[in-house]
Design a protein around this nucleic acid. Structure first.
Length: 505
RNA sequence: GGGGCGGUAGCUCAGCUGGUCAGAGCAGGGGACUCAUAAUCCCUGGGUCGCGGGUUCGAGCCCCGCCCGCCCUACCA
């Protein structure tokens, strides 16, 4: 048994979670369930990044305190767990969780003790309307793109982190896969970025600019810790860095895998800043960073202004939790963004779930009821006619393991539908209804039909097992209807409903 | 400007280290069956694998150039 610690990036959001957030949460959930099913000791973690300056602005815009605002956001994310059937072992909020601040301070002090911080002045173009700095090329005709005013030259004296020191160590770690970055294209991207040269970056902001929101720099109450430095630390503060030595040692330091699942937009922070911070503090690094792409909705980038910020809870309510989970697993490409549409979800659901897997279970359970009164016949030792089906069953788990190890959810899910295909083909080839007629008319021996039904029940039970990490609720139903491994099936009842889109959609 | 990734049948996509690699699913067409959620099974796919060069006995798969799309480009999450 090995140890497996898998975590999402903690989202910082200005609004409600959308399908894009749901994707990452689901991927972690599925990885965790998969490893748990294989017998590993698993910890799945997520949370919210509360300390961004933008949260202060958003809170003001809504006329509430930052504390109240981030609590509201956290609720929305926590609220995703039920409609998506997610099971996390931990959910950390960087503003209010008592474990977080002591850990961040400890991390800061460790980096400081390694002489990796120094003070430096930064001069930039600052828009007071936006409350943020702009780079020259971000301006439109020298004006703030939001407020169309000329930004002021503002100088701020902040703490800087000696990232430049870690250029070569990072190259060594990543190129040797001691810090594994998946897919390989992302690894190349990160390496080429690092090789182009790393500059130190600022890790604090003035308390004034932060309006007192965030974690003060230890020993410097005029400064607040930069939100990324703060946020990244959640991965170790949650298991106990700075508050629970045993927990931290167990999940982070003492072997096992530490896996980050992140979106492509924040690779730099996870694959460069974060490992450098850990190296500086003398801490263990994550073992793997898996980078996913983004979802678009109806052909457009997801955004609130476009009005297409699909609410995953609504989708789940409308089409079903497992239909949504299945779509995200089975239809999301590894490279390139994937477009979410209701139609795609419905098609995937009907083809794979209702017609293939669901129907196979349904016809199997129906036949066992009809021909054998619900009693499951014993599986014969040999059955040449079922050779293909048996081969499909025998290889399925290993194929899923392989795909999951490569974070290829789509290929993993495909293994299940492949087995469903094999099952359906077997039914046609074996034609149990013909065998049943033969039994009645010619008083034939029941062995032939027994064997067919046994093969089918075993196939369905395996489908239930294989499907468990992906679609826990439906998988449980499959196992229940096929008798939980016992010698009787229940009455048949469709497990996956066929979905339809209304005409005007 | 620099870096990364995509551009493969109408649609969505597979194609690992070059030699059945021109594929799968869906859609479309034809047929079979009836256990089943009008589900299933079988047959049916001549697409310059973005464009132009090159390397090679042989290239979607390697190299160069170009076109198109997306992403990143550091103190903005």
């Amino acid at each position: 048994m090995s140890r497996y610690f898998v975590m999402t990036a903690i989202p910082y959001v200005n609004g409600r979670p959308h399908v894009g957030h749901a994707l990452e949460l689901l991927q972690v959930d599925v990885l965790a369930r998969h490893r748990r099913q294989r017998g590993d000791e698993v910890r799945a973690q997520t949370g919210t990044d509360d300390n961004a300056l933008k949260n202060v602005q958003s809170a003001e815009a809504e006329g509430v305190s930052p504390t109240e605002y981030v609590a509201r956001v956290a609720e929305r994310f926590l609220g995703l767990q039920r409609p998506l059937d997610l099971r996390f072992d931990d959910f950390i909020r960087t503003s209010s969780d008592p474990r977080h601040r002591p850990g961040v301070e400890k991390l800061w002090n460790a980096c400081a003790a390694n002489d990796d911080f120094y003070r430096k002045s930064y001069t930039g173009l600052y828009c007071y309307g936006c409350e943020q700095f702009y780079a020259e090329d971000e301006l439109v005709d020298g004006l703030c793109p939001e407020h169309l005013v000329r930004p002021d030259v503002v100088e701020e004296n902040n703490w800087f982190f000696r990232l430049s020191r870690y250029q070569q160590p990072l190259i060594d770690l990543i190129s040797s896969d001691r810090l594994r970055i998946e897919p390989a294209s992302r690894k190349r991207e990160v390496l080429s970025f690092i090789e182009s040269g790393l500059e130190d970056f600022s890790v604090s902001r003035s308390m004034k600019r932060a309006r007192g929101w965030g974690i003060p720099v230890p020993g410097d109450p005029e400064q607040v810790i930069y939100v990324w430095y703060d946020a990244l630390a959640n991965y170790i503060t949650a298991p106990g860095y700075g508050s629970d030595d045993a927990g931290f040692a167990h999940w982070w330091t003492e072997g096992g895998e530490r896996v980050h699942v992140i979106g492509k937009g924040i690779i730099r922070f996870h694959a460069v800043y974060w490992p450098a911070m850990l190296l500086s503090a003398g801490l263990t690094l994550p073992s793997t960073i898996f980078v996913h792409e983004y979802l678009t909705a109806d052909g457009q980038k997801i955004s609130k202004s476009a009005g297409n910020a699909k609410d995953p809870a609504e989708i789940a309510e409308r089409f079903g939790t497992d239909a949504l989970r299945w779509w995200m697993l089975r239809d999301v490409a590894r490279a390139g963004d994937t477009d979410y549409t209701d139609q795609r979800l419905v098609t995937r659901n009907n083809e794979d779930l209702a017609n293939n897997i669901g129907n196979l279970v349904n016809r199997t359970v129906s036949m066992v009821n009809k021909y054998r009164g619900g009693a499951v016949p014993p599986l014969p030792e040999h059955n040449d006619a079922a050779a293909d089906l048996r081969a499909a069953r025998a290889g399925a788990a290993a194929r899923i393991d392989e795909a999951m190890a490569a974070f290829d959810f789509r290929r993993a899910a495909e293994v299940v539908t492949d087995l469903g295909d094999a099952g359906n083909r077997y039914v046609e080839a074996a034609a149990p209804w013909t065998l049943a007629k033969a039994e009645r008319k010619e008083d034939a021996a029941p062995d032939a039909l027994d064997a067919v039904l046994a093969e089918l029940v075993h196939t369905c039970r395996l489908l239930g097992e294989l499907l468990t990490p992906f679609l826990p609720a439906s998988a449980a139903e499959i196992l229940a209807q096929t008798g939980e491994g016992g010698d009787r099936v229940t009455a048949p009842s469709p497990i996956f409903r066929r979905l339809e889109l209304a005409a005007e959609e």
